[in-house]
Amino acid sequence: MSAPADRRGWTPLWFGAPAVLGLGLFVVLPFVMALILTFTDQRLVSPAPGAFVGLRNYDRLLSVSALVQNPVRDGVPVYARVRSVTRTKRAYLGYRPLAGFGLGRRRVTILAKDPAFLKALGNTFAFAVMVVPLQCGVALGLALLVNAGLRGQTVFRAVYFSPVVMSMVIVSVVWAFLFDRDLGLINQALGALSCGLIKPIDWLGNPSTAMPAIVIMSAWQGAGFQMLILLAGLQGISRELYDAARIDGASPWQCFWHITVPGLRHTIGFVLVVTTIAALGLFTQVDVMTGGGPRGATATVMFEAVQHGVREGNIAYGATISVVYFALITILILIQQLMQRRRVGEAA
């Protein structure tokens, strides 16, 4: 269907110009500056602009290697300390152990120049995988509840939304209390509910429970945000569709599955994308609750970026982390878009 002449041509430009200007100047430009920064050794407090160092920052961030060691003596396998090798042999200078495993009589250690970053990368993806279904599921449930037409639902909406409004500092103080092993209410409640079977868990001090604790707190804090977006989507589904279905004798479950879900398709998709992106950029919760610990178990990519960039003053390295993170996500998005287009192409 052909559009009138003035729907094409320059009109879109005028409509989009202010946004393009704003985004270009205040998002794209600083990002490009950050990109340039990654090729220097610029520090936050320093007498001169950083010197050009080429790919040194990327090398320090991403290099991996491996070390194969034979046992020091026969009998019980004992190996030389990995660091005594990496700190003395030229080929391994700058590397640290990331993970190790046995291969026959030999020990293989995977080395990386920045194992903390690689670990943070893993943590970040694990976090996203855990929090996105939880947060979006809860948000959908809440949105359905407060859209059911019950009286007082506007107050409930505000209640479910209140964590989003609260300052992160206060939220983390409260949750740190809740998660405390001996004094926290969560352990007390778990103990009471299980009649003492569940022993107190050191939520934030145990590497295996620290990330789940952050997941729970993040989902709790963010659910209200997604709930609001899903509500907007729900409001957009015509009531008449539901009325017609009910006249035809459809059950609530059928209504949900055949009217609500398809009507929310775009909104749910949007919520999933946005929650995933926010999850991958997780910073404040980790910074305030655990400081990346214990032993890097909760460190995320952006946490590492801020630690190195701002706290340590190494803004070039921090920018490198941000750029690599951004590149990874962009590649994922592009792959997803390509797959979607191909699917649409195949369907056509």
């Binding site: 950050a34 950029g281 952006m302 960039g309 920018a319 941000s322 998005i333």
Partner: peptide, 12 residues
């Protein structure tokens, strides 16, 4: 652009 976290561009 949604991916760019604010901490990444705050200093530039």
């Amino acid at each position: 652009l949604l991916v760019v976290p604010f901490e990444a561009i705050s200093v530039p």
